Computed example of a mutant assay.
Amino acid sequence: MWRNIASNFLSIAVVLLVVVVGVLAWGQRQYVGPGPLAEAICYKVPSGAKLWQVAEGLEEKGAVTSAYIFKVGADYEGRASGLKAGSYLIQPGTPMQEIMGIVAGSGRSTCGTEINYRIGVAATDVLVRELDAVTNRYVEKVKFDPAADAVPQDYLDIAEDADTRIRITLAEGVTSWQVVEALKRAEFLAGEVKEVPAEGYLMPDSYEIKRGASRAELLADMEERQRATIERLWAERAGDLPYDTPEAGLVMASIVEKETGVPEERPVVASVFVNRLRQGMKLQTDPTVIYGLTGGKSVLGRGLRQSELKKDNPYNTYVIEGLPPTPIANPGEDSIRAALNPAQSDYLFFVADGTGGHVFAKTLDEHNRNVAKWREIEAQKSDGG
């Protein structure tokens, strides 16, 4: 009798074990397999949210098949305490495991409403936009010039929302003075700036910040990123450059940045100036002359006069030999790379080609012909042709 009872108990235990193993296997497949979400959503994880709250919220949105399985899977992987507040884009069919990785990842929001404070060479503007999760496209909500326009009420309403992301974007080629002046007008920043950072040492990039962030600390972050970039690229530089310090390389990078906005042209433009330095020719580049006139505090907005091209100052490369004493703007990584690894060419001249790019020449005669063509294009434009 006892033998039969023991045998039956063992059989039941085996069956239960098989069932448990099967359930666990099914749950594991549910956790790592494709999710049920049919349409992309922007899911918000509130500050201080618990895992069970997020799990239930995801189930309500149709992003996970089971809040319980989601929570168990997160617990098993040791991610239960790793939630990061923010708004996250979740694509259709995303597995629960990947969703957990999203909400417990970097904490950087990937959707929702964003204020983008854009500091450009010619102007600064504030753009408020919201990502449409379905189309994965941003929809513009508010746009204004913080220097000229009254602050719209729509902007203030959005800016006061704690969930609104704030981003500051520095365009390549802005000057340090322009950056500081723009940051002074940013109402969401705090603290004073005691001095303008050295020209060229702010990294043009996108910076996500929190309301009330320190202006001084933000500038320090921009400097740290730029110096790290220079150090890294200097270690990868070509071996035959006509300048032997990272500082000089940064000066060249700033000139390249101001001379062309066409990415693929940067190494070629750099090669022209490198070739000129090697041959002892003056650089003769207008952006340096303009910087000598404005100090980087304004856009000239007109052509250079002959008297200005002949004026003796440290930045007039029509007069001085070699490089000017400092950078003339804050160059981006591509321009720094181009200055430190220029293309191999015999070019000594270039001029605008009328399409936004440039045409290059090896001889003065060839260059003069290119200049003549450019003047014809300018004449046609002025005549309305």
Score class of each variant (00 low, 15 high):
R3V: 15
R3F: 09
N8M: 13
V14W: 12
V19G: 08
G22D: 10
W26S: 09
E39G: 09
C42L: 07
K50D: 15
E59H: 08
S66L: 13
E77I: 11
A85M: 05
I90A: 04
I90Q: 04
Q91I: 13
G93E: 02
M96V: 03
V103S: 02
T110F: 07
E114M: 13
G120Q: 04
T124R: 01
L127F: 06
D132P: 06
V139A: 05
V139D: 06
F144H: 11
A150V: 14
R167K: 14
I168V: 12
V174P: 01
T175I: 06
S176G: 07
A182C: 01
R185T: 11
L189E: 02
G191V: 09
E192C: 06
E199W: 00
M203D: 04
K210Y: 00
A213D: 12
R225T: 04
I230L: 15
A235R: 00
A235K: 04
D244I: 05
T245S: 15
L250F: 08
V256T: 13
V256Q: 06
E257F: 01
E265H: 06
P267F: 05
S271G: 08
R278N: 14
R278C: 11
M281H: 12
R302Y: 07
G303N: 15
L304Y: 03
L309N: 01
Y315D: 05
T326P: 08
I328R: 00
N330A: 06
N330K: 03
D334N: 11
A338C: 05
Q344F: 11
D346H: 12
L348E: 05
A352C: 10
H358V: 05
V359H: 01
A361W: 07
L364R: 15
H367G: 03
R375A: 10
G385H: 11
